[in-house]
Each structure stands twice: as C-alpha cells, then as structure tokens.
Design a protein around this nucleic acid. Structure first.
Lengths: 350, 350
DNA sequence: GATTAGCACTCGTTCCCTTTGAGTGCCAAC
DNA sequence: GTTGGCACTCAAAGGGAACGAGTGCTAATC
C-alpha cells in the first residue's frame, strides 16, 4: 500500500514540524507552514488516512497529530534527505577527534565525547570486538612470588594485560619458557579459536611439572578470553533531562536507570550489530525507533549505531541515543562524519 | 552560644521528622510525635529562637520549619548517634565485597557498587593515590618497531602500563639494558620523587646514543607520571531522580550535569581529603552539607567520604552523595562498614 | 522568668467552575 | 477528489472559594 505523493509530503511535514516544535501538528498549521496547494480539509482527509494506516496518531481527540513509531520509520527509510554538515561543524568534529592521542581506546573515547557534544544526546561506544584479532605476542612477567602479569599484544595494535596468581615456587625461567612456548604456538591464531585445550597443547613441550602447569595455563587462558570481552562506554546521560520528552520524572528515571545498566545496553548494541551483519544489509548506520528498542524506558528514544573499523578483522560500534523526536538527518550526518574521522585516525595508528 | 537541652532535642526532632516525612515540621506535630513535657506554644518559642540562631528556617510564613545547612551540621556534629547495622545488613555488604575478586581495582569498584546499593544514593571511589608508592619493577617490552609497552609494578601491588612510541631503530637489547638501568636506579623511590632528571640520571651508564635516549626517557617518564594520576568512579547517579528533593527537573539536571564532570568531582574529593589531612582532625569520615559543597547543583546534597588504605603509604577515598535530607546515621554507619570490609580485603591482597 | 491558652493572621494547596481555542470529523456542495 | 462550513471535543489556563496547618503575639498563670 504505497502512499501517494501528497500523503508522503504530509507525513514528512508532520514529522518535521513535530520535531521542530514538540507540538501536535494540526491541518491548519500545516497549511500555514508549508506550500500545499490544497485546503486544510483535504489535508484532514489525508491525515485521517495516514492515521488509519498507522503512520500518525492523536494524543487525544481534539489535538493535532504526532508521528507514530511507524511514521518515524517511514520517514527515516524513505522520506528524509541526509543533509551535509557545514564547514564549521566539520571542523569542530575534526578538531576534537584528530590530534595528539595515540592510543586506540583513548581515540574512541574522544570520538564518543565529540559525538555527544555535537548531537546533544547520549553517545556510546563499544570496545573493539577482538575475537577475530590474532595474537602477536604473549609475555608473562613475574611480579613477585605467586603473582605474574600476562601481557597480550593483539593484531589490531591492542595491548591487554591481566595480573594472575601463579604457584609460589614457579621460577622466572620456567615462566619465560612457558610464555615462549605458548606464544610460539598461538601466534597468528584468532582469539576466538583459542580454547583451553589449544593453550594446553601449545605448552606441551615445556618440562614443567603438570599440576603446576595446569594452574598457570588456566590463568593464561582466562587472560586471553578476557581480552575478548566487550565493554561499553556511555556519555552524556544527563543531557536527556534537557528534553521535554523526558520532563516527566518517571520517564527520565526509567531511561537513566536502564542506561546505567551498561551490560544490558552493551548486549543490546551487540545484538543490533549481529542482526545487521547477518541480514546482509549494508547501510552505514543502524537505527531503532521507539518500541522497536527492546529496552525498558527507551520507548521515547531512538537508538542509532554505526560501525568503526580497526584493521581488517576488528570492529566496534559507536552510537547515539536521543529522543525519537529528533532531527534524524542532522544526527545521522554527524554520526557518519564522526565515524569517518574515527576510522581515518584509527588507520593512522596501525 | 550553647543550646540548652530542650532546644537540642527540638532541633534533633525536627531533623528526624523532616528526614522521615519530607514535610516541614510544625510545633503541633512535634508534640504529637515526641514526648515533650511542654506545650506547643513553648516549642514555638524554642523554634523561633532556633530560627533566629540559623539552625532552622521556614519555606514560607505559614509552613513548619526545616533544618538549615547549619542545622544539619549541628545535627551530625553533636546530636545524632551512629546506629549499628543489623546482622542482615552486615552480611549483605560482606557478601558483596569479599569473595573471589583478586585485583585491587576491581575490589574497590565492587565496594563502590555495594555502597550505592546499600544506601540507595550515588557512590564514588577514587583510585588509590600512588604518589607515595614506590617503584618495584619496571619493564619495557618491544611490541613492534616503534612501539613499546612500559610496565610498572608499584609497591601497593598495583600494576600500570602504557604503550609508548619509541624510535624505530631501537633494538630489543638496548631496550632491556635501558629498562634494567632505570629499574635498578629508581626501585624503592616514591613516585612523587621521580622527575625527568631522575630518570635521565638513572639511564646514564647505558651506551645508547643520547638523542635516541631522550625520547624514550621522556616516554618512560610520562608513563610513570601517568600511573600517579587520580581517577574517579561514580555509580548510581540515576538513583537521585527517585528522591522528591530532586523532583524539579532543573535541579536534577544541574545535579547530574555536575556529577557527569568526573574531573571536577575528583578534584573536589581530593581537596576534601587534603583539607582533612592538614587539619589534623582524625574522624573516620568527612562530611559536607548543602552549600558547604562548592559544586554547582549540589546545594541540596550532602557529600560524605572516607579513606581506604592499601599498604602503609597508599590510600584512596570512597564516598556517598545523597540528598542532604538523608538519614545520616544509617548512611555513615554503612559507609563505615564498607570501608572496614574494603580495608580488610585489600590487606588480604598484599 | 518560663510556660501556656487563645486568637487573629498568613499563605500554599485543593477543588471546582468557566472560558478559550486549536483541532477534529462529517456533510453537502462544487 | 476537493472544499467550505459547522457542530463537537477536550486539554489547558484562569479565577475564586474553602481549607487547614502553622505562625507570632498577647495576656494570664505557675
């Protein structure tokens, strides 16, 4: 059931006006603000039809219309045109992201910060998904008797480490031999193919007594697995309080409560990413609107994410969470630009 | 101008009632809820006097009284009695803090989490102040040409590291020689006594060409200095929205906005700590009430901190931020218990 | 001199009623 | 298919009365 041209224009105008004013849009104000060559009565008919089809809805009988989730969906999928950033906006973003930082994690964080500043919304970033990266180096450093530091250098230029407990009477030499053996056998293997058995096999030809070995191997193994763990960084949560969409304390609380559970949000972003990857669609961004977001308290939000890349096999996400009554075009173009810059800077690091 | 006994009791009762009900307290309800052997008129006289002295105030002419900042101050300084936790409360806290964690940072974080859960307020922790800790080990690991990892093991059992850029043509051996030399000369020195010059001197007898050396030394030096940097962790900000004290969107926004600037909060906590240290007062906690807190948007909050210890020379802070209309006794006793448990667990780690 | 009963007064809160106005749906005419 | 007209709806804004918890003050009492 395709919408005819005028209905499309009407829907577009309603979304635009509602985003701009936060007031339900009536047929009359639509006529005033836009060049429709028909009367308000005609628009009223169109609006009744749009409502019947589920694109717009009424807060109450005698009010104007507001877009439904489906209406926003139609808008972002086929009605809006992504606008380009001004020179100044571009410069601001560039200035904040590029520069002196020379560690990936810090770079990603500064991109996230920039994203929140530029949009005025909550921004987020996921740590790079390292399961496809491979081991380049592994060192085990004795710290003191019973304690060692496992240092992993991964292909994406990432360094991870973890303090582990080891048997007291393990010597420095044994440690070096062991890490050498593991390193030799596992270098080049993607993290997600490393299992405890792989690690055990790798260490076979060291002449360390087996019970001792087992404990250290287990620790080394968990260190490797931990490197693979996702973490999320959120910024600007408090900015949501500035939007009238969350002026009710209850909504605001639900929203911030959910956002404070970073594990949950991380899981959701991950899910979005997987879905996008398997669906084969190759948009430069993913978007979820209102009830499409399966997180409590985000019914009035939209959730937009994009993917950044570190080398060939490693990627992560950045994203924005804002009121669903947002200027999608601006937000998307800003996020797109931040992503682009971030990718460029990440490339420089490797 | 000492308050007489009855006035003290009146002030105490007003704070207690106001904390419990969030309603301005009138002379009549005071008589009803407490066993005063005098009439309401007498209390009215006392209240007028307490107001004149600045301990309580009226939101408007025909309302009851609420404690002023000064009133709360008097209350926490001399009126309240710290109550003890129930078995169950203690167990809950113990359960959450002790356990399997064997890294200090994680332990501190879990204590912070517990603190927020137990009080229902915002909790925070500062990373340990490492400037008084000393270097135990230093290793520089080659990662790839031009990149190395500086690993520092500090006396408090803390491990810090940083990826640094080094000249491309520096060899592995040179690196080992260099880190050996630095380590040998700086081991046992407190971080805050290490300057660039110290590092430079330490490396003197390596035979590495000087311009090369300079860059690496500078990187090593910044790595050491960075280890000393304070960071803060905040949790439970959204919980503040649940309190009627912040039911006005504006207040809530100011509060969360300020809390989101973690550098600022960290600076403030640090200042509190320094002040307490120099003033020589040896309370187990520090407390700031309302306007005493020099941070925007925290006028209606109280800020309570305590100090945890890692070894002899290293310490950090944990703290709680809640509405100043809080049950101080409960919060303080909970924080005290969390601190005690945290200290115990930290001791086990070393 | 401290305490008390009594009383006029204040002022935020609550409730109810009216008015306003933007917006709607529907119908008959074009 | 489009339009002007019209009756209808309903949230929001405004006004005013009644309420009531609380106050300060005064004059009497212990």
């Amino acid at each position: 059931m395709e919408l005819d041209d005028r209905k499309k224009r009407v829907l577009q105008a309603i979304v635009d006006d509602y985003v701009a004013t936060n007031e339900p849009v009536g047929s009359k104000s639509l006529i005033e603000r836009h060049q429709f060559q028909v009367s308000s009565a005609t628009l009223r008919n169109d609006m009744a039809e749009l409502e019947r089809l589920g694109f717009i809805e009424k807060p109450h009988t005698s009010a104007g219309r507001i877009p439904s989730d489906r209406g926003y969906r139609e808008y972002v999928d086929s009605l809006m045109k992504i606008d380009t950033l001004t020179e100044k906006e571009q410069e601001e973003i560039e200035f904040n992201i590029s520069g002196t930082v020379d560690e990936a994690a810090e770079l990603i964080r500064s991109a996230t910060h920039t994203l929140s500043e530029a949009t005025g919304f909550v921004s987020l970033s996921m740590s790079p998904r390292l399961r496809k990266s491979f081991l380049k180096q592994m060192k085990i450093l004795m710290i003191e008797p019973g304690k060692a530091l496992v240092v992993l250098v991964l292909s994406a230029g990432v360094v991870k480490d973890k303090v582990v407990r080891i048997p007291n009477y393990l010597t420095d030499e044994q440690m070096i031999k062991l890490s050498g053996a593991i390193e030799k056998n596992l270098t080049g293997k993607p993290l997600d193919e490393i299992t405890f058995v792989t690690v055990e096999t790798a260490a076979k030809d060291t002449e360390i007594p087996s019970p001792l070995l087992k404990q250290v191997l287990y620790e080394a193994y968990t260190a490797i697995k931990q490197a693979d763990q996702l973490s999320i960084y959120l910024e600007g949560e408090h900015k949501m309080l500035a939007y009238p969409d969350f002026s009710s304390l209850g909504r605001a609380r639900d929203l911030l409560g959910t956002l404070s559970d970073s594990g949950m949000v991380a899981g959701y972003v991950n899910e979005m990413e997987n879905l996008a990857a398997t669906s084969g669609k190759k948009d430069s961004y993913m978007i979820r609107i209102g009830q499409e977001i399966a997180l409590e308290g985000l019914d009035d939000c939209s959730f937009i994410t994009a993917t950044y890349n570190m080398g060939d096999t490693v990627s992560g996400n950045i994203g924005v969470i804002g009121p669903k009554r947002m200027d999608y075009s601006r937000v998307i173009s800003k996020m797109d630009f931040v992503k682009k810059k971030l990718n460029e800077e990440l490339k420089k690091l490797t």
